[in-house]
Design a binder for these strands. Sequence first.
DNA 1: TATATTTCTACCACTTTTTCCCACTAATCT
DNA 2: AGATTAGTGGGAAAAAGTGGTAGAAATATA
Lengths: 150, 150
Amino acid sequence: MLTGQYSNTFDEKGRLLIPSKIRNELAGDKVIVTSGVDKCLWVYHPAEWEKVVGEIMSSTSQFQSKARLLQRRIIAPAVECDIDSAGRIRIPQPLRESAGLSKNAMILGIMNYIEIWDPEQYNSYLDESESQYLEAAELLGDVLASRNGG
Amino acid sequence: MLTGQYSNTFDEKGRLLIPSKIRNELAGDKVIVTSGVDKCLWVYHPAEWEKVVGEIMSSTSQFQSKARLLQRRIIAPAVECDIDSAGRIRIPQPLRESAGLSKNAMILGIMNYIEIWDPEQYNSYLDESESQYLEAAELLGDVLASRNGG
DNA sequence: TATATTTCTACCACTTTTTCCCACTAATCT
DNA sequence: AGATTAGTGGGAAAAAGTGGTAGAAATATA
């Protein structure tokens, strides 16, 4: 199901363990890691990543400024990472820095992709977005209720 | 896959290393370097470059002022550069200047071409376009959500 | 025109990084 | 408790990156 929230650390060689529960759902020995829209990393199974790239590349052209933004900020940072025999990945320094990652990392499984956050960044994100979250929940409630003819 | 984001420097001889991950995808020992639409350089595999030229030339005529602009600013500056045995290219001074490049360079892989930026130029570009980027991302999200029947 | 000087290019050797693999420890399941 | 799976750390081999040197080409000079 690819969910779960874990707290791991990068070792001295910059390797991060993908928890086995998540790893087993991923299937395969490669993942794509890229920079997320918030201050975190997004990790995809190669097949899922192909969908995202296809969506961006096929519906845009490099001669459109918004397309270039998406390409530069989402596609360009993407790196293919091998999962080693012990289930770890090595994330290149620039990507780690872009998400403000140092030693510790939170790993969130979100159905068809994974997020990696620096714990402190994640906590301040949660704090700052509290009211937005409550709004989003209300909104979702409205949609679901009306769908049920409520 | 030809993606990835790297930070390299021109050496005293004006050589810039193309990171191996990108180089392996490029295949071959020649690239075409030209001036990009934002303040950066665009680097293509010769075959990809032919496609871009074809697209520009076939959809425009030299009797249209806008076409002449595209031809002069994208096609004219193009230069063929050799990749040396260590994977480095030498970019002619005028091209480097046109992108504001001095010592340091950011190299972005964007699927079928590469961008080279001066790091400071790139950071200010990112800053200035932040809100546009978030808009574009939301828009992409809407498209994907509606496709899922959301 | 021959020689000297400079610039450019290709190649080589060293250093650093990355990758791959193995061995050990800890945790979980039966 | 023993067996199996998960997690941790380290070492060796390979690949990538860096700087330099020597040779070729081009330009300038006598």
